[in-house]
Design a protein around this nucleic acid. Sequence first.
RNA 1: GGGCGGUUAGCUCAGCUGGUCAGAGCGCCUCGCUUACACCGAGGAAGUCACUGGUUCGAGUCCAGUACCGCCCACCA
Length: 906
Amino acid sequence: MTETTSGSGLARSYRPADFEAAIYERWLAADVFAPDGRGSTADPNAEPFVIIQPPPNITGSLHLGHAQRTAVEDLMTRHARMLGRPALLLPGLDHASIAAQFVLDGIIAREGETRQSLGRERYLERMRDFVAVTRDVMLSQQRRVGGSFDWSRLRFTMDEVSARAVREAFSRLYRDGLAYRTQALVNWCPGCRTSVSDLEVVPTPETGTLWTVRYHLVDPATGASPDRTISVATTRPETILGDTAVAVHPDDGRYRDLVGATVRIPFVERDVPVIADDAVDPAFGTGAVKVTPAHDRDDHEVGLRHGLPAIGVLDDAAAIAGTSTRYEGLDRYEARKRILADLEARGDLVASKPHEMVVGRCQRSGDVIEPRLKVQWFVRVAPLAAAALEATRTGRTRILPERFEKTWEQWLTGIHDWNVSRQLWWGHRIPAWYCPEGHITVSAEPGGPPACEVCGRPAVELEQESDIFDTWFSSGLWPFSTLGWPDDTPDFRRFYPTSVMETGYDIIFFWVARMMMLGIHLTGREPFQTVYLSGLIRDPLGQKMSKTKGNVLDPLGVIDETGADPLRFALIHGATPGNDQRFGRTKLDSARNFANKLWNATRFVVGARPASIAPSAERALPDRRHLGPAERWLLSRVAAVTHAVDAALAGYAFGEVTRLLYEAIWSEFCDWGLELAKIRLADPTAPAAEREATWWTLVEALDAYLRLLHPVMPFVTEALWAAIPHRRSDPELLIVARWPGVGERDAAAEADVEAIVALVRGIRNARAEANVEPGSWLPVDVSIPQRLGGTFEALRPAIERLARARPLSRHLTPEALREAAPDGLTVLAGDIEATVGRGARQDAGLDTARLEKELAEAQARLDAVRERLSSHAFLARAPRAIVDGARASEAELAASVDRLADRLGR
RNA sequence: GGGCGGUUAGCUCAGCUGGUCAGAGCGCCUCGCUUACACCGAGGAAGUCACUGGUUCGAGUCCAGUACCGCCCACCA
C-alpha cells in the first residue's frame, strides 16, 4: 500500500479544489438542506430554526461581505440542524431597483444608449436579460461558499409571489390609512432621475461659497422703488428665481421696520413680502434670508407657516425650467454662474466668501440631491415605528450586540414618513389607479381594480401609477413574503416568525427597521426573535473595499486558491459582532494551514489503526479498562472543549468558537494527543487491547472535533469524517449527524497529564537553552511526587521519546535525585524536579542563566502574592476561594524559589 | 450639534458578569527534512493593557474626565 493513500483515500495534503464541489453535490443529492428534505434527520417536533438571508443585490457578483454573511448564517443553520432542529436557510436575490438600473445604465451607455432612448419596454427587456445572467452567477457563488440553502425555496423579490405580497401589503397600508399620496418636498437625484429616501442621501461636507445679494424694495402701490434694499445671504443663487419671500427674525431690530414691506426678486421681477419667522438666525449672514419653498426644506416649512407660494424652477435634469427668464434650460450650475455674473453687473452682488457646508449627495450616483416638490406616495411610519420600538423594548425582539438598540431607538424615534415612490422602471409598479376625476383606487388584484372605487368609472378609464416602489419596500416584506404570505401557507405557519435575522449593521435602518415595521403591522407578529448584526469587512489598511480602490478580494478567487473552508474560518475567526474587521492574506493563510493540519491529523489517525481492528470495523467506544492517562486526559479535554463551544455558540460568540477549536485541535489534540498516542500505538510490548483503546480514543476525539468544527468548515470536515469509522446510528453524512454531547470531565487525569507535559517542556527548554545537540539522547533523573507515580510510569516511553531522555531514572525524593545526579541541567516543573545529562558535558553557564531567570520570575510572583496576603483588608474581604488560591500559590512559589535557590547554590 | 465604537506585544486582533488574563495568529530570533503535516516540529524574545482621576481588599475589565482615530444620526441659508 502506498503512502499516498494509506488505505484512507485521503490525499497527502489538503487540496480543497479536489473535493468541495463533489461534497456539495452529495449534500444536494442527499436532499439534506431542506428542513423537510428526504435526507433530513431533524426531529419534526423540535422547534424550527429559520434564517432568512439578506438577499444579495442581483447586480453582479458577490463580495467578501456576502461571503461573511453566508458563513455566519450557515454556521448557525448547520449547528441547529445537527441539534436535530428543522433548519431552514432561505436563499434569495433582490432586484435592487435603483442599484440595478445604475449598473445597467452604465452598460447601455457604453453602447451609446440611454434609458430614454430605449424606452420603458425595451429597457426592461434588457434588464431581464441582464438579470438572467447575473442571477446564475450569484447563485453559483452562494454554492461555492458552502451555504446549506434550501434551494427548493429560492425566492426573488421580483417573482410573482413577491409581487403579490407587495400589492397586498400596499393595499392594506392604504386601507389602514398608512399609505397616502401627496405633494411634498422630496429628495431628487438628477442623475438617477428619481426621488430617493432620506436614507439614500449622503451628507457630504464641502467648501462652498456664501454670497450676499442685495434685493430692492418696492412700493406695492406704485411699483416704484423707494431706493431701499435688503441683503440676503445664500449658497444657492440660482434658486433666487423661485424666491417667494425674504425672512428675518421677529426680534431683529435691524429689520423690524421692513417686516411687511415688499421686495422685488431680480430677473423674475416678482414682488414678494418680507416676513418674520423664528427659524431665522439673526447671527448668520446678514440676518435676512431668501425663502424658496420649492427647493429647500427649511424654506418649505417657512412657506407653509406663512402661506407662501412654492415655485419650482428646476426640471428632472436639474435645469432651469418654468421661469420665463433667459436662464431657461441651463443646468443649475451654469445658471448659477450666469446669475452671479448678472447680479455683479447690476451691482447687487455685495459680497462672497468661502463657506463650509454640508451637501446632500445621492448614495448611488453621487449627484447633488435637489429638494423638489412632487406628488408622490408616502408611508406614514410613526405608528409603525412605535410598534417596532415596543418589540425591542419588551424584548420580544433582541438586537445583538445590544449597543445597537440605542441607535435603533434614536432613529425610530425621530423618523420621517417614508417616500416610497420612485420614478424608475425596474421594480414593482405601485398598484394605484387614477380615474379622470382624480380619484384614487388602490388594488391588490393583479389586473387592477374593476372600476374606480369612488365614482365607479370602468377600468378602461383608469390609469395605473407609473412610479414604482422603493426597492426596500419589497425587501421589507422578505421574512414573510418568502414564506407565502399573504396566504396562510404551511411554510408561513411553520417558519414564521423566523429565528434570527443576520445582516451587516450598515443596513439596520434601510432593511431591518422596515422589515420590523411592516412585519408587525401586516402579520401581527415580530418577523424575527433575534437580530444579529455583523461588522463590515475592510482591507488590511482598514479602508472599505471597493472596486474603484482596487482593494477588493474576490471571494471566488479566494475559494479557488485557498478553499471555501479557510475563507469561512478566517471570516468568522476575525469577527466580533458589530465590529468591522480588517481582512487580508495572512488570515487566510493561517486558516488554510489549520485545515491542512486537521487534514493530516486525520490522515495519521486513519493510518494508525492497529492491525487487530478491521478496516471496515464499526465504531467502538474505547474500552475504559484499557485507557491510559493520556487517553483519559484527551477524552476529558474533548468534554471541556465541547462544553466551551456550546457556551460560545449560545452567546453568538462565533469567533470564540473558532479560537477554541483551533487551540484544542492544534495545541492539544495534535501536539500532545497524537504524539502521546503514537508511542503507545507503536509499542509492540503493549497489549493489543490497550493499543485498540488508544486508537478508539483518537477516533472518538477526532469525531467530536470534526462535528464541532463542521458548521464553520463544512467541506473539509465532511470529507474527513467519511474516512473515520462511524457508529451504527450515524447517518451517511456529517451534515446531518448529531451534535456531540458533553462527556464527563476527569480533573485528575487532566492535572496529572499536564504535569507530565510540563516536565517534558521543561526538559526541552533546558536542552535548547543550553545548546544541547538536538538529536542527542541524555540521561534524565527525575524525582516525582507519589501521586504522579502511576502516570509517570504509564507515560514513561512517551517521556523518553518526547524529551529524548535515556535512560530515564526515577527517584523518590529530591534528595535522592541530587545524590544520584549531582551535576547536569536542572528542571523544575511544578513539584517535579529533574536533572538532565548527568555526567554529560554541557554549558553550565547557560544553565545558570536560565535558572537565574526562572528564580527572578518566581521570586517576583512570590513577592506579589505575599504582598496581597499581608493585607488584612484582603484577608477580611476577599472571597474564601480567592484567599485560598493565593495561599496555595504562595506555597508553590515558595517551594520553587527554595529549590531554584538551592540549585544555584544559595 | 447629538449618539456609538476604537485606542492591549512590530502588525491584525481575543479578553463574557472585576481576582492565574496579560493572550492568539502573523512577523521576528535559535535550532530541526524525528516514521500525519516544512501549509511542519522544538525552543525563545517582545506589552507601564492611550492618558488622568475615582470606586474597590483587588481594575485592560466598573465610573468620571481628557486626547487622538473611526462610524452613525441631525433642516441652519
